[in-house]
Design a protein around this nucleic acid. Sequence first.
DNA 1: AACTTTACCTAACGGTGTTAGATTATTTAT
DNA 2: ATAAATAATCTAACACCGTTAGGTAAAGTT
Lengths: 198, 198
Amino acid sequence: MASKDRILRLKEETRVNILDAAFKIVKEEGWQALSMRKIAEEIEYTAPIIYEYFSNKEAILAELNKKGYLLLMEEITAAKNAHELPAEQLEAIWMAYWNFAFKERELYQLMFGVSMNCCMAQKSPEVEAPALLVSEVIKRLMNGANPSDNDVCRRYYTFWSVVHGLVSINLVNRGVSDQLNKQILKDTIGGIIRSITG
Amino acid sequence: MASKDRILRLKEETRVNILDAAFKIVKEEGWQALSMRKIAEEIEYTAPIIYEYFSNKEAILAELNKKGYLLLMEEITAAKNAHELPAEQLEAIWMAYWNFAFKERELYQLMFGVSMNCCMAQKSPEVEAPALLVSEVIKRLMNGANPSDNDVCRRYYTFWSVVHGLVSINLVNRGVSDQLNKQILKDTIGGIIRSITG
DNA sequence: AACTTTACCTAACGGTGTTAGATTATTTAT
DNA sequence: ATAAATAATCTAACACCGTTAGGTAAAGTT
């Protein structure tokens, strides 16, 4: 009977509604505000209903995660296809990645484990000390060029980005071998130093 | 009277005990397992007592955050002092930073907002697609050199680390200007590309 | 010994994810 | 059309969370 199909379509529809509601809440109020009861309220049901469509909250997050990757894939594919030369493609791809992260920051947080409620924001002497120490060394390395604060800062963030990026990828992923990581680390740091000293 | 001092010392001691208990729980069971009631059980009190020493849970996290920065500062200072030349100092500092992240991974997570329960771990076609696409382009860029999978993978992680590092620093920090970020991004990506094409 | 202060606890509030069981509505079979 | 079976949905509850109010018991002070 065709009514079976209609019912299946309705079921699929509320499944989508649940995901949309979750996404809307996260966009408007952030991840910490996402709760099963709030999703239920949004779709005008009670909370236990959601468990007919998703085995638990984590399953909803997994689905949104997938959605994020599909969106990212769209963006970087378009960026790639806008160019011919691989060098230009690569630059466009990573620019698209960057833009995606800020256009869909909530999805990016979910996808790559960037937590929201971290203490780094609040400034204090203890928190700022490492940056100062490293910046001093960078300044010494560049002392021939008489660098501005902006230059030093740029170099500091370049170092920090690579290392923190590689660290956090490994903390959440545990994918690549330690040997490969150390190699990447040494090579890249060496590269930045050479690019400074010329 | 001296008893006043002794009592103050005792108060300070249980303050430290609370922090130690929290740290122990996190080390053994991760951040998601840290609760006020569990801390209380560890120090053999009930939960409300903790609020005599810390205004809320966040204040405890802030204190552990500070502890993390002090430890990190120790490590990178020692690394720096082991060398004379700024180039060597920088390499040693970032290696120390790397080692700190994995020796004290829980502290690192807290300090830099690396969230623990992220979906990236679970592999699926959707999740792997972007990496494949980028790797293809990298391979094309290196086609003269006939690169191994390991080489391509290394380059991919180098790109990804910088971009993801810069992104996540900006997502949690909101510190640096957009202009500086774009500059860092373009420079670094260009640098990596040039280091590939020779 | 009575009074005051401190230390500490129990009980509760409103929130979370999740499950069990009852209730209502819809479909199917007679 | 009516009875039985199935599906859809809800209420109530569990065990946990951070946090607060209020009471009790101990310690210190006069």
